[in-house]
């Protein structure tokens, strides 16, 4: 257990440290990179909990896809750091309120465990037990049976969001020549080129 405990404290400390760096780093690109590090360490914590499927999903979805797009945008922004710092006091109350609400919610959950120890035990014991079934089977057996409609509608909501974003940002520009791949593939040599036998010294 010593090694597990050491690993836990390593991952937890790294998560907290990189989360702090996300909000204190001066450069937004560094912030995003620290965010990736934080995700990675959280994935490590998931592995320690025995939730390897969630850990891999976190790395694939958040590190591999979402944050890449995020980084893509942040790298291209032209950011004025002086202006950013001026806005700090203005947004401070809002940010602090959200932080306090999250802290209070965690306190309520942990407090509930204090009053009802059996609830904490229920939360700590995965159903079904890890030994009987792999993570992936257990999640699939729940998501695709009991919660299939909720799961599908979550997917639909994401799809609608994506289509909405495309519709909002897509604009038709006049005077743009578009490539029609089918036409190009169907072109015959005889239609576009002509072969001529040219006599030496005469020209066409």
């Amino acid at each position: 257990m010593v090694v597990q405990a050491l690993a836990f404290y390593l991952f937890a400390a790294m998560t907290v440290a990189s989360a702090v760096m996300v909000i204190t780093a001066k450069n937004p690109v560094h912030s995003v990179l620290f965010l990736v590090l934080a995700f990675f360490n959280v994935a490590g914590l998931f592995v320690l909990l025995g939730a390897e499927f969630l850990a891999m999903l976190l790395v694939v979805v958040y590190c591999g896809a979402v944050t890449v797009l995020f980084l893509f945008v942040v790298m291209m922004l032209d950011i004025n750091f002086v202006e950013l710092r001026q806005g700090f006091l203005q947004y401070m109350p809002l940010g602090a309120t959200i932080g306090i609400i999250l802290l209070a919610e965690i306190a309520v959950v942990a407090g509930g465990w204090h009053f009802a120890p059996e609830a904490a035990k229920a939360a700590a014991a995965p159903i079904p037990a890890i030994e009987t079934m792999t993570n992936t089977h257990a999640l699939g057996a729940i998501i695709y049976t009991d919660y299939v409609y909720l799961f599908q509608s979550a997917g639909l909501i994401l799809l609608v969001g994506m289509i909405g974003a495309i519709v909002l940002t897509h604009r038709k520009r006049a005077g743009v020549r578009r490539q029609v791949i089918a036409d190009q593939v169907n072109v015959n040599v005889a239609d576009v080129a002509e072969f001529k036998k040219v006599e030496t010294g005469k020209g066409v």
């Binding site: 990179l33 891999m56 790395v59 694939v60 591999g64 890449v68 792999t134």
Partner: peptide
């Protein structure tokens, strides 16, 4: 010999983009 080997490989190959993005930036 982990249970989620395919996902692990997929995750690692997906992370490869960071080396290139970081270098370019």
């Amino acid at each position: 010999n982990i249970n989620v080997g395919v996902l692990y490989l997929f995750a690692v190959s997906g992370l490869g983009v960071y080396g290139i993005l970081m270098a370019g930036w």
